[in-house]
Design a protein around this nucleic acid. Structure first.
Ligand SMILES: [Mn+2]
Ligand SMILES: [Mn+2]
Ligand SMILES: [Mn+2]
Ligand SMILES: [Mn+2]
Lengths: 218, 218
DNA sequence: AATAATTTTTAGTCACGTCTAAATTTATAT
DNA sequence: ATATAAATTTAGACGTGACTAAAAATTATT
């Protein structure tokens, strides 16, 4: 049985290897978990000992099949709980991450699957992140950053990349939520900002914001 | 912020002081938590240091107001989650305790109160145990053990004393659930067993079982 | 290729929560 | 009142997961 610390390391390694390449560096993990490289080194030995990661000193790590399966399961729990909190307990999408960080460590396969059924087997969480099914398979998604939407093209918001509350609250202020229709009117080369339409209402967003919104083309 | 271990100790002390007298002994706590007396002694120092218990060496402990408030809050969470698991996720009443033991440690006041609202502010959990409200007040209850129900009197099951799955499953087999109508037909002095009616159907239970069922007189 | 900078690992320490064994205190029995 | 038994605490150890400082390996620069 894994400790919460071990689970958090596995999740961090999965996240980093999905974002970047296969092999994940010690420092990257330390940054992700707000800990120190030396602590990571210690933990890598333990996880390697348990056959959850492949670890060669100084060469970074990557998940074994077993480790990946466990990491995906934790992500599944995290996202299912987020759906519950938003859809049934009336939390806002910027309030659920920290609570889900705790709930994801609750150990009971029955609980996860009953929760999944209660929620009607959702494919995406409140931030548009894909939820793996019981077999660990992620729903197919094809989305591009808002910042790459061609001028005059229209799209639909399907996910956000960051889940920092401050960013999500800013999106609320801009009336940008999952499902919103968006269109690029003009790109301002001067500051790389965009004149856009959000649900047909004229607005303006920075490149930084646009990069963190994922859309599908309409 | 309390650790899970500290919370479990507080809960154990509350439980024991509710059942028996004020002051709780080191060994009683050790038994309750399946740990050793020496571990309890160590923890008593820490909890005392944090002003959560009154502790005089060799004299047992009892909760301070602060400690009691925290302990009651954990009980509140435990029982609310049990209601959720049974009423919304279709768990049986014998399956929820261990999961609630984990969920009770999730830290978020907002979560507890939103869950409470979602569940319609229940007063009792699936085992008939009273659920304290946000202010920490328990609903009033007056129940007696089934074993003390006079012959020919009728009562309604309101709670069970034990929550061991084996006991609860046995009650299922006997068709005894919260709300069931019960009546004592005859007491068998020979083995202290009871001839009873459960929802008007004749049955037979031992003293041991009868002592662990709480009823209110009709 | 040699040196410098960066990354990673190791060595040593610490707090937490547990344990066993030994010492101490309190309770019980004679 | 004294001896014995039971309960409790202390002493010393261990595993986990973190840290700092120092050493070692890798990568980048000249
Ligand atoms: Mn999240
Ligand atoms: Mn999410
Ligand atoms: Mn319970
Ligand atoms: Mn209960």
């Amino acid at each position: 049985m894994l400790s919460q610390a071990e689970e958090n390391y596995l999740k961090a390694i999965l996240k980093l290897s999905q974002k970047n390449g296969k092999s994940v560096s010690t420092n990257a993990i330390a940054d992700e978990l707000y800990t120190k490289a030396s602590s990571v080194s210690d933990m890598m030995k333990k996880l390697s000992e348990k056959s959850l990661i492949h670890y060669v000193k100084y060469q970074g790590v990557y998940l074994t099949e077993k480790g990946k399966g466990l990491a995906v399961h934790i992500v599944r729990k995290h996202r299912l709980w987020e759906v519950f909190l938003v859809n049934h307990l009336n939390f806002k999408w910027d309030e659920v991450h920290d609570i889900a960080e705790q709930l994801e460590h609750i150990k009971s396969l029955e609980l996860v699957n009953k929760l999944d059924a209660f929620l009607n087997f959702p494919s995406f969480d409140p931030h548009g992140d894909p939820i793996p099914n019981e077999a660990g398979e992620f729903p197919k998604t094809s989305a591009i950053p808002f910042s790459e939407l061609p001028v005059k093209s229209r799209g639909k918001v399907v996910a956000v990349v960051m889940d920092e509350p401050s960013f999500l609250k800013y999106l609320d202020k801009l009336n940008i939520s999952i499902g919103a229709q968006v269109e690029v009117i003009e790109v301002n080369e001067f500051d790389d900002s965009f004149d856009v339409k959000i649900n047909d209402i004229q607005s303006h967003i920075s490149l930084d914001v646009a990069k963190n919104i994922l859309i599908s083309l309409l």
